[in-house]
Amino acid sequence: MSTGTTLTESQYDINIHRNGRLWMLAAILVTQGVPLAISLYFDVWPPFGTLLAGLVPTIIVFWPIAIIEVLTYTPMLGSGGTYLGFVTGNLSNLKVPAAISAMQQAGVEPSTKEGEIISTLAVGASSLVTNLVLVLGVVLMSYLLPVLESPALKPAFANLMPSLFGALGVVFISRNWKISVAPLVLMAGLFIAVPTLPVGILIPVGALVSIAVARLLYRKGMV
């Protein structure tokens, strides 16, 4: 039996891809089964055209990001870690750092057989902990529902979006302010002029503007 670190295909490698794909397929059925269950149980079916209109901005921004995430994280996480991590989510903020830190502590490298094992164990343990914390938290919070729904907290939840994007703005602007200026000025101007503009239509516009600016600056070697 080989105990080396090169990736020659073992029975585990063959099985992990077959089983991983089956689990991923099952996860797709489970995740898409949630809205289906809601629609079936409560007999509520959103009109397709309107749903599509609400979905297109998300697809335009997040599907290209998904391609880059798959290409970036898959080699880091290894096969088992990938099939599990992409189901349980929270990759950049939890699963990837957990896997990398575990591999460092064990003194093994990503893309080796040992790295594959340690990464899968780390992602698995991390998923279990998140699950446990969420279950306990949701049980506790279900007792706090009347507080969450109280009128005093309404303005807090009404300002959820500015609160997320204020914080996220600081992160991305400080990371690369040069590509931020043009889309920010454009959007601020548009919304101050016409406050009722639908965000959904402007997301792709903002994305195109920032990609164009980023490409230009990148080519000129300014970012």
């Binding site: 979006m161 991305f172 590509i179 931020s180 889309p183 920010l184 601020a188 903002g206």
Partner: peptide, 9 residues
Amino acid sequence: MGLISAFLG
């Protein structure tokens, strides 16, 4: 940034 600028606006 495109997404953030739209929501910030």
